[in-house]
């Protein structure tokens, strides 16, 4: 028993006797780890200085940075943006006058872009809403240019930018050519597909419009766009039977 206890004491004393050599070794290893980490770490996100927090966004931004979860918080901001957009569209939002409609939309869209510029489907969606639903071409352009600063390899942002520019110029055929690669992406929002289908109809390319409507029905989870696509197919059936497109007048305004 004595032998065992002596052995145990000796083992423990070896570490004790090492004195402050062990903390020095530990510190050296820790700093070596930090040095390696500094060499390896390259953030793909915009720097913190670009976040431009407001009293409204700051608490969630702080949580995003503290938990290393920009992606999740970009998702949360997208949900909040969709709720805001829905409420304003239904007249249940904060806006008191026409000028105030969707007033916060641009700021909120930029906030998602600043948190996660790689969130392709959300960023393309917000840019499309700004350009095609609200006619805020300059905001949409600024948003897409900001996104391209961090993801120049994202051809969908380039294509969206081109289609916004064509829309601004009032050239639908150019807009159509630039938007086709965007709608081929699996995560393309149904809103963009629906707008493109209308553009196809305007250009008289009914077969492609029908194909796109069928794609919306097959892949979308949004009832609103599924209903629009079903209606679109019914309209195209009438066109096939020789009638004029029921939306021919409205299509000229797209």
């Amino acid at each position: 028993m004595d032998k065992i206890l002596t052995k145990r004491k000796m083992n423990n004393n070896k570490i004790k006797k090492a004195g402050f050599i062990m903390p020095v070794i530990a510190l050296t290893l820790f700093l070596a780890g930090n040095f390696l980490a500094e060499k390896e770490y390259h953030s793909s996100f915009p720097p913190i200085t670009e976040l431009q927090p407001t009293a409204f966004t700051a608490p969630l931004d702080m949580a995003a940075l503290s938990l290393g979860s920009r992606r999740v918080f970009a998702d949360i901001w997208l949900i909040r943006l969709l709720i805001y957009y829905g409420l304003e569209s239904n007249g249940e939002g904060k806006a008191d006058s026409a000028d105030e409609f969707y007033k916060e939309f641009t700021g909120r869209a930029f906030h998602i872009a600043r948190l996660d510029p790689s969130f392709r489907s959300a960023n393309t969606l917000t840019a499309a809403i700004l350009a095609f639903n609200m006619n805020r071409y300059d905001d949409a352009e600024a948003l897409l240019k900001y996104l391209l600063k961090y993801h120049p390899e994202q051809r969908f942002y380039t294509q969206s930018l081109l289609s916004v520019a064509a829309r601004k110029k009032g050239d639908p055929s150019e807009m159509l050519e630039s938007i086709i690669p965007v709608i081929q992406a699996p995560d393309c929002p149904p809103l963009i597909k629906n707008i493109t289908a209308l553009l196809f109809r305007r250009a008289g390319r009914y077969a492609e419009a029908a194909e796109l409507y069928a794609d919306i029905i097959r892949t979308s989870k949004e009832k609103e766009y599924i209903d629009k696509a079903v209606q679109g197919l019914k309209d195209l059936e009438l066109v096939r039977q020789g009638y004029t497109d029921p939306l021919s007048e409205e299509l000229q305004n797209i």
Binding site: I15, A18, L27, L29, F30, G33, Y41, S44, V72
Partner: peptide, 30 residues
């Protein structure tokens, strides 16, 4: 968080983790 940037583990990042764990272990043992 960085899924879009591709598979991120490199020999360097894994070595950094090993060094940090070792440093903390040595200090704890002390």
């Amino acid at each position: 968080d960085t899924a879009a940037a591709g598979f991120p583990f490199t020999a360097g990042s894994l070595s950094a983790a090993f060094l940090w764990i070792s440093a903390a272990y040595i200090l704890s043992a002390w």
